[in-house]
């Protein structure tokens, strides 16, 4: 992915989805009203986070087999960027919740589990800080990363379905894709998801390259 076309595509898609997301028409629904536009900004954050954490696990597995330092750097940088996207997802969700549920944080299961899964990755970063030796750090943190990933999947996709949640798509509440995601919204939503995932990947590659250069500079 050294070509430039996907970076341009990412920028165009995100700019398009921001402008079109704020200007194009949306279905009128009770309570949601105009806040439905948050779909274009909130949901792509989580998709980008999942993609970045998956990249992180992929390189952790690779690192266990190869013991290669660059794989470790890739794993940690994608986890770093993933955490940022997770935090943005929490913030955009909280702002939306303020206008629809009445408060920023109402201890809804979805909110809680999302926050805990961010904690999981914060623990991963702290584990990295706790170990001095690089080889050992790479190996042990890779193991914890792989151990944490299925737990994150359980937290985000299994547990919220067992509990009553106000979140759209849960507990009998209408999901965005059931009846209210009409063709106008799809035209913005899908490009927004793709755009933000690509932007997340882009940020990760930049951060990885900076880290790599810093490491090389230290070795001289």
């Amino acid at each position: 992915m050294n070509k430039i076309w996907w970076k341009i595509l990412a920028a165009v898609l995100v700019i398009y989805s921001t402008i079109a997301g704020l200007l194009l028409g949306v279905p009128r629904l009770a309570i949601l009203n105009e806040t439905i536009r948050n779909l274009y900004f909130h949901v792509p954050m989580w998709f980008a986070m999942i993609v970045l954490f998956s990249i992180s696990v992929f390189y952790s597995i690779k690192n266990l087999n190869s013991q290669n330092e660059t794989d470790d750097l890739k794993a940690v940088e994608s986890a770093n960027v993933g955490i940022i996207f997770g935090l943005l997802g929490l913030v955009t969700g909280a702002v939306w919740a303020k206008f629809t549920w009445g408060q920023f944080w109402s201890f809804d299961p979805k909110q809680n589990f999302a926050a805990i899964s961010i904690l999981l990755y914060c623990a991963y970063l702290i584990l990295r800080n706790a170990i001095e030796e690089e080889q050992k750090r790479a190996k042990i943190s890779a193991i914890y990363n792989i151990f944490a990933f299925p737990m994150m999947v359980v937290l985000l996709f299994v547990l919220p379905r067992l509990q009553d949640s106000l979140h759209p798509g849960n507990g009998g509440n209408p999901g965005f894709n059931s009846y209210d995601l009409d063709s106008r919204m799809r035209m913005v939503f899908y490009p927004a998801c793709l755009g933000w995932i690509l932007i997340g990947y882009w940020i990760y590659t930049i951060k990885f390259r900076i880290r790599n250069l810093q490491n090389q500079a230290q070795q001289f």
Binding site: L120, A123, L127, A130, I131, K136, I140, A148, M151, L155
Partner: peptide, 26 residues
């Protein structure tokens, strides 16, 4: 994992709480 990291008790709590919370909720 915590014993290999060589940093006893506190690391154990930090690493295990996020993993055990879903189990605890259920």
């Amino acid at each position: 994992i915590a014993s290999k990291a060589g940093n006893g008790g506190m690391l154990m709590a930090i690493l295990s709480f996020p993993v055990i919370i879903p189990v605890l909720i259920v």
